[in-house]
Design a protein around this nucleic acid. Structure first.
Lengths: 346, 346
DNA sequence: AAGTTTTGCTTAAACGTTTAACTTAATTAT
DNA sequence: ATAATTAAGTTAAACGTTTAAGCAAAACTT
C-alpha cells in the first residue's frame, strides 16, 4: 500500500532529454525531424525510444509561443445550428485538419457585438487566420482586422467597400434563373420572401428576382421582407394577407433562405394549400427538412464543399504568404428542379 | 511618400510598460487587477491609459504557458451536422463563454480513430477539460485520459465500466413510456427501429421497448436493427420487407434517433403510407425536419439546454477542484404527443 | 602533419506572460 | 531620533518550446 503521487506532471521535452541522455535541443530536432541539423542515427533512435516510452506529447502552447504560429483557424458563422453553416463547418474542419490546422468555431447569432467579441477572442488566442461569414454593421471590425494584418477570407457574405478575399456564389444570377424558371413555367404572380437587410448577397438575390420579373408586366409589390428576428411571426401575417385577404393570390413563392423556406412551408401547410397546385415553391439552400415535405421541392443548391475547401485553400495561402494577391471567387449555385415548381396546368 | 513598415509587431505588455514608464510587472498587476499587490492610483491610471492608447490585447498563448490554464474546453460530438449535436454545441458554447471559456468543437463521425486523434489534439492544445459524447471502442482512450488527470464529463453516452462524470437521459424509462403509450392507444404490432450497436444508451432504449412489450402476447422479432453506415439502405430493405412482403404489417413504428426517423419517414412517404391511419409513428429527438412532415409527430424531446448547462457546470467544477466527487446526472426526456400516434380507430 | 571541412551535439537566448521575492521610500511607532 | 511597518514598485525566474550559434571530435585535403 503505497501512497500515489496525485499531481501527474506532464512529460516535457526535458524529461525525454534526460531519459535519452541528450540535450533538449537534440530532442527537439529529432521530434520535429529537422534533418538539416545533423543528428546521428543512434541519437535519433534513443530519443524516439525515450519519447515513446514516456508517452511524450508536445505542448502546443509552448510551441506556439515560440514559433508564433498556433495552427488555429477561426471560423465565424452566423448560426452553427443552421444546417447551411454546420455543413460548411464540417467541411472546413476536415479540410483544415488535413493541412495540420485546428478549427475554432464561433457563432455570432447575426449580432455585431457578439461578432466583435468573437473576433477579439480569436485575436487574443493568436489564431493564424480567420474564415468569416460577417454580419451587418461589422465593416469597422473587419478593417481593424486588416490593420492588424490578420489573414482572413469572407464566405457567404461580403462588403463591396472592403477589399478582402471573398468567396461567394452567383447570387444575382441564380436568383434571376429561378425567377425565369417560374415565369417559363407559366406562373403569373410570383412572390419573393426575403430578409429585411443590408447584406449585399441578399440584396443581390432580391435584385436578380426583380430584374427577371421586369419581363412581366405586373408591377406590384411582390416582395415580402421579413425581419430576421421574427421570422415565424412576419411570415404568418404576411401569408395571411397574401393568401386570405388579397384579391389576387400568389401562384408561386421563392424563398431566399432555408429558414425562410421552412417557416413559410409550415405556414402554407397550416393554410391548407397544395404545392404546386395552389402555389409553386422554390427554396434556397438544402436542408434535411425539405426531404420530409410532402412535395419534392425545387431548390437552389449551394456548392458547400467547394466553398469550404476553397476557403481553407485561400486562407492557407494568405497565411503562408502575406502578400498573396486578393482573390474574389464566385462559385455557381445550381438549380435543382423538382415537383414543387412544375409547369402550371390551367 | 514614405515607405510603410510592413510587419506590424503586436503590442506586448513590454510596450505598454515602456509607454507608461513602469515595469512590466506593474502592467501585469494592473491589467489583471490584482489589487492585493499594492499599486498606486496614478500608476493604475498611467497603465490603463497606455494600454488603451496602444490598443493592447494580451497574448493568451503566453498567458496559458505561464498559468497552465488555457481556458479552453473541448467538445467532441459524433456529428456536428446532426441537429441534436449542433444545438447542444450552441448551448455549451454560450455557457462556456459566460464563465470565460472558449469552446473547441470536434466531430468524430462515430469513428474511434478520429475520436482518438481529437482527444490527442485537445490534450496537445492543453484544453482545461473535455465534454465528450464517446463513440464505440473508445474505452481505452478514456481510461488514458483519466490517467492523465484530464477532467472530462460524458454526455449522451457512457460506458458502465468507466467511472466518470456522466450526463444522460432516462433512456430506458422514456422508451418504456413510448411503447406503453402506443400499447395504450391500441396498437398491436409495434416495431422498433434501432441501431446495430453496443452503445449502452441505445441498448437501454431497446430494452425499455422490449420490457414494455412483454405485456403484450406477441413475441415475434419486431426490432429492425440498422447499420449506422447504411441507414437509408437498411431502412429501405427493412421496410420493404415489413410493409410489402410480410403478412401482418406493423401498425406502429418507434424510431430511436432523429436520423433513423427522418430516413424512415422518407421511406414511408415513398411507400404511400398514411400516418397514423396506416401506421403510427413515434420519433426520437427534435429536429426542424419533423415540422415539415405532413402529420404532426409524436416524439421524445431531450432536455438539450439542461444537458449543455449541467455539462459545463460539472466540468467547470471538476477543473477547479480535481477531487470533486463523481456525479451521474440523469435528466428526464419528455414525451411530446401529437397526431402521429393518436388512438387507433378500428 | 597541418589545415580545412564535416559531423554531431550542446548552450543559451528568446517567445510574452505571471508572480514570488526583493528593494526602496514613506509612514508610523517607540 | 531610531526602529518597525507599510506602501509602491521592480527584478528575475519560470512556463515548454525552437533555433541560431558555438564547440569539439572526426574525417577529409593537400
Amino acid at each position: 500500500m503505497h501512497s500515489e503521487i496525485d499531481v501527474v506532471k506532464r512529460i516535457s521535452i526535458k524529461d525525454v532529454a534526460l531519459k535519452a541522455g541528450v540535450s533538449i535541443a537534440s530532442v527537439s530536432y529529432v521530434l520535429n525531424n529537422k534533418i538539416d541539423s545533423r543528428i546521428g542515427k543512434d541519437t535519433i533512435e534513443k530519443v524516439k525510444k525515450a519519447a515513446e516510452e514516456l508517452n511524450y506529447r508536445p505542448n502546443n502552447v509552448a510551441k506556439s509561443l515560440k514559433t508564433q504560429r498556433t495552427h488555429i483557424i477561426g471560423l465565424i458563422v452566423a448560426d452553427i445550428a443552421n444546417p447551411y453553416f454546420s455543413q460548411i463547418a464540417r467541411i472546413i474542419e476536415d479540410e483544415a485538419n488535413k493541412i495540420g490546422y485546428t478549427l475554432l468555431i464561433g457563432s455570432s447569432d447575426e449580432n455585431a457585438e457578439k461578432f466583435e467579441s468573437l473576433i477579439n477572442m480569436f485575436c487574443d488566442r493568436q489564431a493564424d487566420g480567420l474564415i468569416i461569414a460577417p454580419v451587418e454593421n461589422t465593416k469597422a471590425c473587419l478593417q481593424k482586422l486588416q490593420k492588424q494584418k490578420m489573414p482572413f477570407v469572407l464566405i457567404d457574405r461580403h462588403f463591396p467597400e472592403i477589399e478582402a478575399d471573398t468567396i461567394q456564389i452567383n447570387n444575382y444570377d441564380i436568383s434571376y434563373k429561378v425567377t425565369e424558371h417560374l415565369i417559363n413555367n407559366s406562373y403569373k404572380n410570383i412572390h419573393l420572401v426575403a430578409y429585411k437587410t443590408h447584406l449585399e448577397h441578399l440584396l443581390q438575390r432580391t435584385q436578380g428576382f426583380k430584374d427577371a420579373l421586369k419581363k412581366q408586366t405586373s408591377e406590384k409589390n411582390n416582395i415580402l421582407n421579413i425581419n430576421k428576428d421574427d421570422i415565424d411571426q412576419d411570415i404568418n401575417s404576411g401569408f395571411e394577407d397574401l393568401f386570405k385577404n388579397s384579391k389576387i393570390k400568389p401562384d408561386a413563392v421563392f424563398f431566399t433562405s432555408n429558414k425562410l423556406a421552412v417557416s413559410g412551408l409550415k405556414k402554407l401547410m397550416k393554410l391548407g394549400l397544395n404545392i404546386p397546385q395552389d402555389v409553386a415553391i422554390v427554396a434556397f439552400d438544402e436542408t434535411e427538412a425539405y426531404e420530409l415535405f410532402a412535395t419534392p421541392l425545387t431548390f437552389v443548391r449551394q456548392p458547400l464543399a467547394a466553398i469550404g475547401t476553397t476557403a481553407v485553400e485561400i486562407l492557407h495561402n494568405k497565411i503562408t504568404n502575406q502578400l498573396a494577391p486578393l482573390q474574389h471567387i464566385v462559385l455557381n449555385a445550381e438549380l435543382h428542379i423538382d415537383q414543387s415548381s412544375q409547369p402550371k396546368i390551367n
